[in-house]
Amino acid sequence: MRIVVCLKQIIDPELPSSQFKIDPGSKRQQPNGHPLVISPYDENALELALQLRDQTAGHVTVLSVGQSSAVSALRKGVAMGADEAALISDPALEGSDAFGIAAALAQGIQKLGPPDLVLCGCESGDWADRIIGPILAEALGIPCVTYVARAEKHNGHVRAQRVVEEGYEIWEVTPPLLLTILSHESNVPRYPKVKDIMTASRRPISTWSLSDIGLDTGHVGNAVTRVEIQELTLPTRESRCEFLEGEPGGQVASLITKLREKKVI
């Protein structure tokens, strides 16, 4: 089974709000040297890919669109166990929306050779648009199941557990297909071993420009976005927490009083 996992490198989303700064020019978060990580659900997707590969024979490629720094995200993917890695990086991609990124990913996937399974995180840890996976599936012309907690091979098909409001659904799909992956107890990302981190750090990572993947610059970049971020601001609400002191009994008594004042109980 040939699996491609799409990884996005983002600024650590758990960075405290006090260190969160907006770059007014790009209308994005200022990097300011903050730690860069693989967007959380993308790691769950990679973990699932590695498990599916290990059940039978297979090949896992991690693919990213981003700046040269994203090589470190791909190296982590290799250290976790991916067989191959490729980065699509080109100045023309700057400011692309989901359609531009998906076009680049689709071309990169074509270059890698036809996959059986493409995995994406269900949403990114920064903008959480939740649309890259479905749009990429459209660009590749393959079926898509979103918000999948677990997936397994089943008689030549893939069975995917899709989480919905009331519970879950099991969908059966014949490859090739794309799944967007949610975290689940079954796909907690493995920690790479020190030895594998060392090996991965010496691995050359293929970096492709748009011309390497045969994508015209007219499909990507800020000029062809279909929506525009007009403004990015900090939210005004920053409530001050009132701490209730004392022994548990006193804390509970104060809490009851406060909640009754607010008429919520």
Partner: peptide, 12 residues
């Protein structure tokens, strides 16, 4: 955006 750390105004 950014898990609620920012608010974005977006125009089509």
């Amino acid at each position: 955006a950014y898990g609620g750390k920012a608010i974005a105004a977006i125009v089509p």
